[in-house]
Structure formats: structure tokens, C-alpha cells
Amino acid sequence: MSNVNNRFKKDLDKFITEFDDDLIICRCEEVTKGEIRRAVHDGMYTLTEIRRYLRSGMGLCQGQTCQILVKGIVAKELGISPMDLEPVISRSPTRPIEMKVLGNEGKEAL
């Protein structure tokens, strides 16, 4: 991870817009490629920071669809291999679940 740890901004090239910056990458939260690239230039160097900054991967599918896509974009922007980016932490519930169901532990709960 050491190559993303020094957050001094001189490390990155200038932000230049690209023709497909409007492309939706995270469908659940409607985050575009341009927003992700811009966030990297704003200093968000890890997938966790990108997610907290833009909400990408925080929607109903929990990043199942977009995580790899976001990873590729961030890695390219940072000039590193996607293999060097640690995926975000996984959270319960693995599938979205109604509050009334999550609150219903039944009799044998404990």
C-alpha cells in the first residue's frame, strides 16, 4: 500500500477531463467516471475514501457491480496496478433487509 500513502499532491498529473467522464460507473448511487477521477485528484487515494466521499458502492448492491470498475479507474489515475488497491470492507447485512425483519430475531435469538 505504500505507493498510495504519501498524499502530497505533486505526485499526480494535472486533472484533464476525458470524453467519457459522464459515464455512470456506480448505478445505485449514480456516480460518474469523472467524479471518481476528480476525487482522486482531491486526495482520495483509497477505495474506502472514494466510497465515503462519493457514495460509490454504498447503494443497494453494495458495490457488487461497480467495485472492480471503480478500482480500475482509481488505479489508472494513480498510475498503479489495481492489485495494489485494497477493496473496501464488507458489512452486514450482505443483502439489504427491511428494518422490521432485521429487528425480528424470533424466540430463539440468543
Binding site: P93, K100, V101, N104, E105, G106, E108, A109, L110
Partner: peptide, 11 residues
């Protein structure tokens, strides 16, 4: 593990 079975959470 927690499991959602028939809209009930079981441990």
C-alpha cells in the same frame, strides 16, 4: 452466522 429465514433473523 445470522440468517434471514421467512423474514426472521436466526442465529
Amino acid at each position: 452466522v445470522t440468517v434471514n429465514i421467512n423474514d426472521e433473523i436466526r442465529h
